[in-house]
Measured scan of single mutants.
Amino acid sequence: KELVLALYDYQEKSPREVTMKKGDILTLLNSTNKDWWKVEVADRQGFVPAAYVKKL
């Protein structure tokens, strides 16, 4: 499975999103959308801005 690194803190703004902290390592589930990537963090799945994460 592919992992991404959170480059910035992100606070979810809708139930479809997830909160992450800078430095978090997240499991990447889907990166087909260039703006929003689906990730899993702490047993929750949701979207984060693609610009806020980097593939490892």
Rank of each mutant, 00 (worst) to 15 (best):
Q45F: 08
V18A: 05
M20C: 06
V48P: 00
R44P: 00
G23F: 05
Y8P: 00
A6T: 04
Y10L: 02
G46I: 05
T32G: 11
N30W: 08
N33R: 11
K38F: 15
T32I: 09
W37Y: 07
N30A: 09
L7S: 02
L56P: 03
E40Y: 06
N30Y: 07
V18Q: 03
K21W: 11
T27S: 11
Q11S: 12
L28K: 01
E40K: 10
E40V: 11
V39D: 00
D24W: 12
K54S: 12
N33A: 10
P49I: 03
T19S: 15
V48M: 02
T19M: 05
K34A: 13
L26R: 01
A51L: 12
L26S: 02
D24S: 08
V4C: 13
S14A: 09
Y10T: 00
L28D: 00
Y10W: 12
A42G: 15
V39R: 00
A42E: 13
W36M: 06
V18T: 07
T27G: 09
K22A: 14
A50M: 06
F47E: 04
L7K: 06
V53W: 00
Y8V: 11
K54N: 07
L7Q: 04
N30M: 09
V48C: 03
L26H: 04
L26E: 00
D9Q: 04
L26W: 04
Y10P: 02
N33C: 10
V39T: 01
L26V: 07
R16I: 12
S14H: 11
W37R: 01
V4S: 02
P15S: 12
P49T: 02
V53G: 01
S14W: 07
V18E: 01
V53T: 05
W37C: 04
A50K: 06
R16G: 14
P15T: 10
D43A: 10
K21P: 01
Y8N: 09
A6W: 02
R16L: 14
Y10K: 00
L29H: 06
Q11I: 15
M20R: 00
L7H: 04
K22V: 08
D9I: 02
Q45R: 11
M20S: 01
L28E: 00
D35R: 15
K55N: 08
V39K: 00
R44M: 06
T27N: 10
S14F: 06
D9A: 07
G46E: 02
G23N: 08
K55D: 05
K38V: 14
L29S: 04
V39L: 05
A42R: 14
V4T: 02
Y52Q: 05
Q45E: 13
L7Y: 04
N33P: 04
E17R: 05
R44Q: 08
Y52S: 12
P15Q: 10
A51I: 12
Y52C: 10
N30V: 08
K22C: 07
E40R: 09
V53M: 06
Q45G: 07
Y52K: 07
M20N: 00
V41C: 11
E17K: 05
K38R: 11
K54C: 14
L28F: 04
K55C: 09
E12R: 13
P15V: 10
Q45H: 10
M20A: 02
I25R: 06
G23L: 02
L28T: 00
L3P: 04
G46Q: 01
E12I: 06
V53Y: 01
L7V: 07
L5E: 13
L29C: 07
Q45Y: 08
Q11K: 14
W36H: 03
L29I: 15
W36V: 03
T19C: 07
K38M: 15
A50N: 03
D43C: 11
Y10N: 00
K34V: 11
V4A: 10
L56G: 03
W37G: 00
L56V: 13
K21C: 11
V39W: 01
D9H: 06
K38C: 13
S14V: 05
K38N: 07
E2K: 10
R16C: 14
D35K: 14
L29D: 02
T19V: 03
T32A: 14
L5Y: 11
A6N: 01
Q11Y: 15
E2N: 14
Q45A: 13
E17C: 07
V53F: 06
N33G: 11
D24C: 06
Y10Q: 00
V41A: 15
N30R: 07
R16P: 06
W36I: 03
A42D: 15
V41E: 04
D24A: 08
L28V: 06
L56H: 07
E17N: 05
K13R: 14
Y52N: 05
V41I: 15
W36S: 02
V41G: 14
V39Q: 00
Q11M: 13
T32M: 10
P49K: 04
W37D: 01
Q45N: 11
E17H: 07
K38H: 11
W37M: 04
